[in-house]
Amino acid sequence: MYSISALEHCRIGVATTYGKPYFQFVKTLKILNVKYDSLLPGEIESYSGNLILTTAEESPKFANQPILYEEILKEDPTVIQGIIIEMLDSGLNDNELLIGIDPGQRIGLSVLYFGKEIERGLYNSPEDLANHVAKILGGLRAERKIIKIGNGNMQVTKQITTLLNLRFCSHFELELVDERKTTKKIKNYNKRGERDMMSAKFITQREGYRRFVLPLSRTG
């Protein structure tokens, strides 16, 4: 679920004459709720927007804006949004990936990259959540990767952490957060899905017990 966009103030140009890449670029930007301009490759050098999506074959040697090619389309939409944010970052924000998880029957997720929320979602099983989070961990080149999980349902929390250790073959920081401190802030969110997602966001703002999780290939 991609309910928000951190790129709402950006202008992105889609510059290709090839039908398939154009359709895929546009589809991804619509998932991310990002506005775009349709360009011809010859208009790239004069484009005044923030970023350009095009094919390697149609890309000019020089451009005023960052360029991403069609190979980016193999990534998860959340990862794509994170890569764009990284390319456009002014250097004032920490290169940090922060993921908040509210465990329960329905699992809330909030993902922040370079200080911007790039996903707020809801997942039905620890397996689906772990598979998705592993893609994000593997797809974004953050200097620090921190996962904060609420302690309200330790059975689900343990499932998620075990699955992440199996799915993601590198280290990350894991922090258990007291969910009770988020209750007052979310009492006005009556819909259960909204409450779970907002709880995940507030979990990212709380401090808890932190430890490093090493991949099983290094720990045996």
Rank of each mutant, 00 (worst) to 15 (best):
E127G: 08
F212P: 08
D37I: 02
D94Y: 04
S199L: 01
D196V: 08
Y123T: 08
I84H: 08
K20W: 12
A15S: 09
K135G: 10
T28D: 03
D196A: 13
K185C: 01
C10P: 13
P41I: 01
I147V: 15
M198H: 14
L32Y: 09
K116G: 01
G108D: 02
G49F: 07
K61C: 10
F172Y: 12
I72L: 15
S110A: 13
L176E: 12
I67F: 00
F172L: 07
P60T: 11
A63V: 04
Y123M: 15
R120C: 04
N190T: 14
N190D: 09
S38P: 14
A130M: 03
L163I: 03
G91Y: 10
R195S: 01
N153P: 00
L39A: 05
Q155G: 11
E70D: 01
Y69C: 00
I4G: 05
I203R: 03
F25V: 08
K116S: 12
P21A: 00
T55K: 00
S38C: 13
E8G: 07
Y189R: 05
M154W: 10
L7G: 06
P126C: 02
L216K: 10
M198C: 12
D178P: 04
M154S: 05
V26H: 03
L140Q: 10
F168R: 02
I186M: 00
G152E: 14
N124D: 08
L92D: 13
P21T: 02
S90A: 14
Y123E: 11
Q159V: 10
I146T: 13
Y18E: 09
K201H: 15
N131V: 02
A200I: 01
E179S: 04
I31K: 11
A56N: 07
T161V: 13
P60D: 10
L109V: 06
A200P: 00
G42T: 13
I160W: 11
N95G: 04
F114W: 14
L98C: 06
L32M: 15
S170I: 02
Y22D: 05
P66M: 10
F168T: 04
N95R: 09
R211S: 07
R141Y: 12
K148W: 06
L40A: 06
F62M: 12
F212S: 10
R192S: 08
S3T: 10
G42Q: 09
L32W: 07
T219Q: 05
L68S: 03
Y2C: 08
Y189E: 03
Y209G: 06
E70C: 00
L214P: 02
K30A: 13
K135Q: 15
K191V: 07
E207A: 07
I136L: 02
T162L: 06
V34M: 09
L163A: 09
D128T: 14
V26S: 05
N188M: 01
N165Q: 13
S170N: 14
P41W: 01
G115P: 04
A15L: 03
K35E: 12
V133L: 15
V34T: 08
T55I: 06
T55C: 03
Q205Y: 01
A63D: 05
S217A: 05
L88H: 15
K20F: 13
T28C: 11
N153F: 00
G104T: 09
L29E: 00
Q105E: 14
K201I: 03
T78S: 14
I80G: 02
M197Q: 11
V79H: 14
